[in-house]
Amino acid sequence: MSRFSLYQEEYYPSPLQNTWNEFKQSHIAVLGLWFLTFFIILVLVGPLIAPFDPLTQNIDALLVPPAWEANGGIRNLFGTDALGRDLLSRLIHGCRMTLGISLLLVLVAMLVGVALGAVAGMSRGVRSSILNHLLDSVMAIPTLLIAIIIVAILGVGLVNSMWAIALALIPQFIHNTREFVRQEVKKDYVLAARLDGASKIHLFFYSVLPNMFEMLVVQGTMALSIAILDISALGFLSLGAQAPSPELGVMLSEGLQVAYKSPWSIALPGSAIFIMVLSVNVVGDGLRSALRNRMRH
């Protein structure tokens, strides 16, 4: 059967393709995406490519400078720290820990926050109003402070700090989802879907959620950079991950003791955190404008 098609040369890109086409327009965003992909690959296959065990100490090679220094060696590409552990392997494992945990936390916080926010947004009256005012007051406190308070109650440790950061990230997701859902359900297209006989759950998933991705991307990337910074800050203050573990914040605080003799031991984890947060923000910004622009052409 021949298909009647007036525009044979035209093809109809899916929303995802549209977004990607828009995203490609910004070179900086694509560069950020390359960096982010690199980090995510490290998260996935880090242990396979790390040359040494990150915890093995080598007393014969303390504070070896990196390969580009005059007295550095090729064996330890990024040099070693005060206990003779290979910095490259520690960095790879550190990126894996910091970024991997942050991604996990943001995912959990997003799921919980969006679910609660959707319930609050679709319902009316005292219940949703109480939730709203309570969360607004929580949102006024910086997440790191909330995390420190929670850690102070639960006790130090990586798992406790993960709980703390996840809990601290949830309120902003709830708040933003609620506000967004409230705005959207007033619009005519939701009324139209309601008149089609859609239930509240159907309304949320099929009418409101497709419009929410832009907001979720913005909030998600913001939360991801906050989570990375909080995880390493808690590690740095030795409230989160503890000493031997190769977490970037912990590495920074250990390197601080020998900062004058071997500046690379703080420069390397520091710049890893910096590039990670920067690439997350650049990609998030690019995605947001891509999502906004695809509605325009």
């Binding site: 005519d188 297209y189 139209a192 419009n211 509605m295």
Partner: peptide, 14 residues
Amino acid sequence: MVFQHSNESLNPSI
């Protein structure tokens, strides 16, 4: 029902 503002009565994302 047919709405007055056809623009707002159509979901922009689908």
